[in-house]
Structures are given as structure tokens and as C-alpha cells.
């Protein structure tokens, strides 16, 4: 018995298989692209979460309702969110004194750079009966696009508002609102289970301060 297969049938079969292969490859491409896009959006959300966490710690640090010991613990927790844990660190072979907070005030012109660890100490020691610091909610924190710095590092910036109220004898003695932008460093670490993302905060810029 001899099986005869026509030439055009072979061509049709081959083309159908090519079409299926093409559709498969295109699908794989879109899945990979979509995954990469999802990861970037996820990282931006995680950066906003870190900033929100920092803001919570700042709020707890400032509250005189908590003991100094508890507030010092929150200071340590907050500093651990930053590069070098807020202490001096090395970057590209250059020693840096520590992460900076650039501050402004309604009572003075110009800007002042302060080490983040000193800024947090100042928050704990504010000379008011009580201090209330609140910040933009996580959903409203604005995050810039991720910029690639190296094969395993990205940077972005988060922008938010922070309101400060200092109380004396139960009444607001000082109020201001500052808009801030904080740099976020995202490091990709390859582990046995896959990729892990470590987010650390960097220098913070205070854009303007207005009396509330």
C-alpha cells in the first residue's frame, strides 16, 4: 500500500504549523512584556509603601504621647529604611556622611541640609507639649518612572505633602505644610527562589513650606 500525499496538502500543513508557532511566540512575547510592565508598576507601589512607612514612623517619633524610649525605637526603625541605615556609607568608592534631609522654614530664607539621623533626633526633641505630623496617604503619593542605574539597580522619586502642628497648652502654636520628594533606590537581588527587590530611601528634598 502506498500513501500518496499531495504537494499542496504538505504546504498547507506546514503553513498551519507555522501560523500556530507564530501565534505561540507572539503570546509568549506579550506575556513576558506584560510581566516586566507589571513588575515596574509593582515596584513603584512598593516604593510608595516604603515612603508611607517612613511617614508613619515620623508621626510616631513626634508624638509626645509615647515615651522617649518608644520614640527612639521608631527612630531606629525609620533610619533602617534608608541607605546605610541613616549612617555614613560608601557609594561608588566615595564615602558619604549619611542620607540628607533638605529643610525649609517659614521663619527663614534659603534651604538647609541636615543629616537624616539628626533630623529624626530633632523630631523627638521638639519643644512643644505635643506634635502632630501627618502625611499624604499612600494612594496619593506620586511616584516617578523607574530609571535604570545598573543591571541590578533602579531609582525613582516619591512626592508627598507633610503637615506639622506643634501644640502648646492644648492649642496649635505652629503649623506648616511642606511638600517633599524622596529618592528611592531599588536593588534587584537574584536568589534561589527568583528575584528579590530591596528598596532603600535616599536624600529628601523639601520643596516649600507654608503656614497652614
Amino acid at each position: 500500500m502506498c500513501i500518496i500525499i499531495r504537494k499542496d496538502t504538505i504546504i498547507t500543513l506546514a503553513m498551519n504549523n507555522m501560523k500556530k508557532l507564530f501565534v505561540f511566540l507572539i503570546s509568549v512575547f506579550f506575556i513576558i512584556t506584560a510581566s516586566a510592565q507589571v513588575n515596574k508598576d509593582l515596584l513603584k507601589r512598593r516604593a510608595a509603601e516604603k515612603v508611607s512607612q517612613m511617614n508613619d514612623y515620623i508621626s510616631f517619633m513626634a508624638s509626645k504621647k509615647k515615651s522617649v524610649e518608644v520614640r527612639q525605637r521608631y527612630r531606629t526603625n525609620a533610619l533602617n529604611l534608608f541607605i546605610g541605615e541613616g549612617n555614613s556609607y560608601e557609594e561608588n568608592g566615595v564615602q558619604k556622611e549619611g542620607v540628607l534631609m533638605e529643610t525649609t522654614s517659614v521663619n527663614r530664607q534659603g534651604k538647609k541640609n541636615e543629616l537624616m539621623r539628626d533630623y529624626f533626633t530633632r523630631i523627638i526633641n521638639y519643644n512643644y507639649n505635643d506634635v502632630n505630623i501627618t502625611s499624604t496617604g499612600i494612594a496619593e503619593i506620586k511616584v516617578s518612572s523607574l530609571q535604570k542605574v545598573s543591571d541590578n539597580m533602579y531609582v525613582c522619586t516619591c512626592q508627598y505633602d507633610q503637615a506639622f502642628v506643634g501644640y502648646r497648652d492644648g492649642r496649635p502654636a505652629y503649623k506648616d505644610i511642606t511638600t517633599k520628594r524622596v529618592k528611592c533606590y531599588i536593588t534587584v537581588e537574584r536568589t534561589v527562589d527568583g528575584e528579590e527587590y530591596i528598596i532603600k530611601l535616599g536624600d529628601t528634598e523639601a520643596i516649600a513650606t507654608k503656614r497652614a
Partner: peptide, 18 residues
């Protein structure tokens, strides 16, 4: 009450990226 305004935060062009 504390002076923060989500509407302003949302409408403001907060970043150059934005």
C-alpha cells in the same frame, strides 16, 4: 483638619515626570 488636601495633591503636577 491638618491642612492636607488630597485634591491639591492629585491635581498638582508634582513631578517633572508627571
Amino acid at each position: 483638619i491638618d491642612g492636607l488636601n488630597n485634591y491639591i495633591q492629585n491635581t498638582r503636577v508634582g513631578l517633572v515626570d508627571e
